[in-house]
């Protein structure tokens, strides 16, 4: 079990590294080596660490621990073929981590990040529309059942393309350097992670690595179906590269545009689900 966790953290951080490298190459820069993010975490964890005097101390630390715990839970839900609903509940709870990170430090930049995070809560609506679409098609929300359904009927990607697109946008919104990443954009320093430095940042980066791994793997599992480990790894990297292209080529949107686009997507998916519900 612990081996899965450690493996996922390292692979997730490696994926972050590949993401950065790909973005740099697309933009014509050499970019850091792909294991840079792993080194980053080690570097942060060796830094001197304390808690800012203005912070709400308990919350400041607890949020880091909760972030790691939340994504560990998600990983195990995914691996044991548990409930899809639970997996995405965990995804939603990540929102609380974002708020907590920003609010707990007392820094105005962190607070701005948290406020933007509240606004972009709209991005979670496509998620539930996705879940509803999958439920209408497969009749179950257990990931193991969805796998079995795909083994029998072929990948869900073709059956429920709009739902896949919605999930793709949701995954995109959570990537570093994504056009939707308004909560940590640079005009507010580092947004909600501004004050988390040293060990706290190392823990957070580990959690975010876990998050990237879980989200990409969840997309593969949900829409491409069961496949051998090596093939899954290739699929994850390809998926990541497609995301990197979008991140590299699109500017960061303003908070208002972010919310508009995400609500727009959500609206389209809801219409799709309602239509499907009527037709089926």
């Amino acid at each position: 079990m612990i081996e899965y966790l450690i493996f996922a953290v390292f692979v997730g951080l490696l994926l972050h590294g590949i993401h950065r490298k790909a973005i740099a190459r697309i933009q014509g820069r050499p970019g850091p080596p792909i294991w840079q993010e792993i080194l980053h975490v080690l570097k942060f964890s060796f830094k001197e660490t304390w808690i800012p005097a203005t912070a709400s101390q308990t919350l400041f630390v607890a949020v880091v621990i909760i972030a790691i715990g939340v994504w560990s839970t998600a990983l195990f839900v995914l691996l044991t073929g548990g409930s899809l609903l639970l997996l995405f509940a965990v995804y939603m709870l990540h929102k609380i981590v974002e708020h907590g990170l920003g609010l707990s430090s007392g820094s105005p930049y962190g607070k701005f990040g948290a406020i933007r995070s509240v606004m972009s809560a709209a991005s979670e609506i496509p998620l539930f529309a996705t879940i509803a679409a999958i439920y209408l098609i497969t009749g179950s929300l257990m990931i193991s059942d969805i796998q079995a359904w795909q083994a029998a009927h072929g990948p869900l990607l073709f059956t429920a393309l709009p739902a896949a697109i919605a999930l793709y946008i949701v995954v995109l919104a959570k990537m570093h350097y994504s056009p939707f990443a308004v909560i940590e954009s640079k005009e507010i320093v580092s947004g909600n992670v501004t004050e988390h430095f040293g060990v706290w940042r190392a823990g957070l980066e580990a959690a975010f690595g876990l998050k990237t791994f879980v989200l990409l793997y969840a997309f593969i599992v949900l829409f491409l179906g069961p496949m051998p480990l090596l093939l899954a790894a290739v699929a994850m990297v390809l998926l990541l590269l497609s995301l990197s292209f979008i991140c590299a080529l699109s500017p960061m949107l303003s908070p208002f545009d972010t919310v508009t686009i995400q609500i727009g997507t959500a609206g389209l998916i809801v219409v799709y689900v309602l239509l499907m519900g009527v037709i089926v």
Binding site: E48, W50, T54
Partner: peptide
Amino acid sequence: AFPFFLVALGLWWNAAEKEEGDTP
């Protein structure tokens, strides 16, 4: 246990010697 392991590991590597926090 895993979150505590990660965070405590980092703290153990380089436990802060400072007595008080700093303003950000």
